[in-house]
Amino acid sequence: MTPTTPPIAEYHSRPLRSGIVGVVRRLASRPLALIGSLLVLMFLMLAISGPMIAPYSFNEINREALRQPPGPGFPFGTDSLGRDVFSRVLWGAREIIVVPGVATAVAVVLGTLLGLLLGYVGGWLDDLVSRLLDTLLSIPAMLLALVMLGAIGPSSIGIILVVALLYIPIVARVVRSATLGLRTAGFIEAAKLRGESTWYILLREILPSVLPALTVEAALRFSYAIFLTASLGFLGLGVQPPSPDWGRMVNEARDSYVRAPWALWYPAGAIALLVISVNLMAEGLRIALRREGQQ
């Protein structure tokens, strides 16, 4: 009776597979995010290769060239001791990226674990620890950093510890709230019903869904950590002299600002540029990853 029916047209929306390639492509499609990411990449390369391409050592003093304006021999000029600002900025790049980078990594890893646990387990543990974290967050970051560094003495390790401690609560809060929304999701309850351990549920079931928010948060934390590290350097609590630290370079150049303003401009500009480009990248990531989630 019925004539031959052609096979039913298979309908499946086939969105892009989630993957790094897709995210990078979408990141690159926005001009500001692209510029930010390229600059971050450039800073990373400088951190690795800076000492190799720097014309001078960071503490090499040219007595005959004090406070030289930027020019052929010294692209960024020289400071009041006759040190090449360009070389010092290049040498300092490693410090200003590695210290906040390690600090952020520590904060993200520990903050994520804590946030997952608090969000998933909840109960009195969450009540107690969340209030503790709130207390920690209510103290001004700089004040806490000064006190702690004053106690343990200024060093790279000290800064890493302080910055990590300051950012763990922030990361934990972000992860906790993302986890709370998933706690009653069907796939989590199905995992419980097949007897998965809490750690499996946290790391294999919840973490992937939290990862987009976490990536953005990590990038943002990184930019703040750079700023904080530079500020601590400026206050003399960073890496000790004579090794170059952008924050301390700004501080040292203050005294001779009238006669050699470039010695301040370039390290300060480098800090600003690095923070801005990390921020641009973070914003780009946020949008690139959100689109991912919406599919």
Partner: peptide, 16 residues
């Protein structure tokens, strides 16, 4: 021996 089917199809499967 006891398993469950949940109400909301959008969160019953892990998206990842």
């Amino acid at each position: 021996e006891i398993q469950m089917v949940f109400q909301n199809p959008s969160d019953t499967l892990n998206p990842y």
